[in-house]
């Protein structure tokens, strides 16, 4: 991914208070989008077993999807999905979370993305998701 692409993602993240609060960092994107969510104490969902909150994992995937959707639809800001379906496959630990988002089908109005999140081994995802985005043609 070009430096210009990285710069765009950084701008969109900075312009999105929730995405900034989450702390998502886009670090590479040979195809689709790859990012990392550095571990922070606020992301712990179960303090006893120190697992990440499932909603935080989902939110990270949604943010990644929103960034990729903006790029693929040629828009100038992070997008919100119309829907998300997520399966939690494994428990998480108090470590960084990696995410990858890939396009399944890019249409004129609709965009379908698939995403996965993992911690230590990308062959052992902790969560997988599909997201649908509608291209916004006017302000709602």
């Amino acid at each position: 991914m070009s430096e210009e692409g990285h710069k765009l993602y950084r701008q969109w993240i900075e312009a999105s208070p929730f995405t900034s609060w989450l702390g998502l960092q886009v670090h590479a994107a040979p195809t689709g989008l790859e990012a990392i969510l550095p571990f922070e104490e606020k992301n712990v969902g179960n303090p006893f077993i120190r697992s990440l909150h499932g909603g935080i994992v989902s939110a990270a995937l949604e943010c990644g999807g929103g960034l990729l959707a903006a790029r693929l639809h040629g828009l100038d800001r992070i997008q919100r999905p119309a829907s998300i379906s997520i399966s939690y496959l494994r428990s998480t630990a108090d470590r960084d979370l990696n995410i990858q988002v890939l396009p399944i089908k890019t249409g004129r109005r609709l965009l379908f993305l698939t995403a996965k999140a993992w911690q230590d081994d990308d062959d052992k995802p902790v969560a997988i998701a599909t997201m649908t985005f509608l291209r916004k043609t006017k302000e709602v």
Partner: peptide, 11 residues
């Protein structure tokens, strides 16, 4: 942000 809505519903 939709991420917050997901987080709330998950919880």
């Amino acid at each position: 942000h939709s991420g917050l809505l997901t987080l709330l519903l998950d919880s």
